[in-house]
Amino acid sequence: MSADASSGTDDRLSGIRYAGIGDEAAPDLAGQLEALRRLGWRTIELRTVDGTAIADLDDRAFARLSAGLDAAGIDVVCVDSRIANWARPITGRFEDDLDELRILARRCAALGTRYVRVMSYPNAGLSEAEWGRRAIRRMTTLVHEAERHGLVLLHENCSGWAGTRADRMLDLLQRIDSPALRLLFDIGNGVPYGYDAHALLDAVIGHVAHVHVKDARARAGGQVDYTLPGEGESGVRECLTALLQHGYTGAWSIEPHTHLRPHDDHNTTDEEGVAAFVRYGRSLERLVQREVTADNGGARA
Rank of each mutant, 00 (worst) to 15 (best):
A3C: 13
A5E: 09
T9E: 13
D10I: 06
D10M: 03
D11E: 12
L13P: 08
D23N: 07
P27N: 09
D28S: 14
R37W: 10
R37V: 08
R37Q: 14
R38S: 01
T43P: 05
E45T: 01
E45P: 01
V49A: 00
I54G: 01
A55S: 15
D56M: 14
D58H: 03
D59Q: 03
D59T: 03
A67S: 10
D80I: 09
D80Y: 01
D80W: 00
I83Y: 06
T91S: 15
G92A: 11
D96R: 12
L98I: 00
L101F: 09
I103W: 07
A109R: 03
G112T: 04
R114S: 10
A124H: 15
L126M: 09
A129R: 14
E130C: 04
R133W: 03
H144P: 12
E147R: 13
R148M: 05
R148N: 14
G150E: 10
L151Y: 11
V152E: 03
L154K: 00
W161C: 02
G163E: 11
R165M: 09
R165S: 12
A166R: 06
L173V: 05
I176P: 03
L181K: 06
L184N: 06
F185E: 04
I187A: 08
G188W: 02
G190N: 10
H198N: 14
D202T: 08
A216W: 02
A216E: 11
V224L: 08
Y226S: 09
G230K: 04
V236L: 15
T241K: 02
T241A: 10
L243W: 05
L243P: 07
L243C: 02
L244N: 07
G247L: 14
S253V: 07
H257N: 08
R261I: 10
P262F: 15
D264I: 15
D265S: 15
N267M: 07
T268Y: 05
E271L: 14
E271K: 12
E271M: 13
A276V: 03
R282M: 00
R290A: 15
D295S: 13
D295T: 08
D295R: 13
